[in-house]
């Protein structure tokens, strides 16, 4: 635990009009860790991860990656730093196929008939997609399947594939199981554990304490824009976490 964190944020503040969404929040994520981020609605979880993924910039506070201060200006710079996000609504293009989604914004190109004109190398992108899909053990017929035709779990897996394909060091998952059935939820939990096995760190936002207790190593609790707790899952109980989420105070044991 005393190692240098992979990602560290200090004194993060963010205001929307008169609403203080985040108030002097510290946050750290260690190497090869699954971190749960919990809190009631409006606690500031989403704002916090949007700052990490480059969708918002903080009003105050500093972000360090492996001890070095970084500026995350937009989603593109987050990606360059190895931070990928699986959004709650997945942020997939329904009308494109799986391979096109995975390579969106980072297309593989080739020369057109030996001319200097660069065109999409569709075959190569589809071929490269296959191993990632296999690794996730998703039953998808072909990387050419349109996302609009996929089931909820398959879509979730595609969004995850999109982030892990690029060998992200940090993967943020926003409520990944909220819209899924039982079997698909189990699958996503398994994928999360597999990501850790491969050396990535995961920030998991969830309302579902079942998710937290089945996969997470450590949990940070937010309430009203403040950090009110930081627990190793092994050393805590559901009651304590719920209590922290609701009252911000430590449960009496």
């Amino acid at each position: 635990m005393q190692k240098e964190p992979l990602l560290k944020m200090k004194g993060i503040c963010k205001k929307f009009g008169s609403v203080q969404a985040l108030n002097n929040v510290d946050f750290e994520l260690y190497d090869n860790e699954i971190l749960g981020l919990v809190g009631d609605n409006g606690a500031g979880k989403t704002t916090l991860i949007k700052i990490v993924s480059g969708a918002y910039s903080p009003d105050e506070g500093k972000i360090f990656l492996r001890g070095e201060q970084v500026n995350i200006l937009d989603p593109r710079s987050a990606k360059t730093l190895g931070i990928e996000t699986v959004y709650q609504d997945l942020a997939l293009a329904d009308k494109l196929n799986i391979a096109e989604n995975i390579f969106l914004g980072k297309e593989r190109l080739k020369n057109f008939l030996g001319t200097p004109i660069r065109i999409l190398d569709k075959k190569r992108m589809e071929a490269e997609t296959l191993p990632t899909l296999r690794k996730l053990k998703i039953d998808i017929e072909s990387p050419r399947a349109k996302v609009a035709t996929l089931s909820g779990g398959q879509r979730q897996a595609t969004a995850i594939a999109k982030s892990i394909f690029w060998k992200a060091r940090i993967i943020i998952m926003d409520e990944p199981t909220a819209a899924l059935g039982v079997a698909e939820t189990m699958k996503v939990r398994q994928i999360t554990l597999d990501l850790k096995k491969e050396g990535a760190s995961v920030i998991l936002i969830s309302h579902n304490l079942e998710d937290i207790f089945s996969v997470v190593d450590r949990v940070i609790i937010l309430r009203g824009g403040r950090r009110v707790g930081d627990r190793l899952v092994k050393q805590t109980t559901r009651d304590e976490i719920v209590k922290l989420m609701i009252t911000g105070e430590r449960a009496i044991q």
Partner: peptide, 19 residues
């Protein structure tokens, strides 16, 4: 051409993909 299509479907998805 691909980017035009994606922007037309959802500017948000395009932006989040770094377009």
């Amino acid at each position: 051409g691909k980017y035009i299509t994606v922007v037309g479907e959802s500017q948000r998805v395009a932006r989040l993909s770094g377009i």
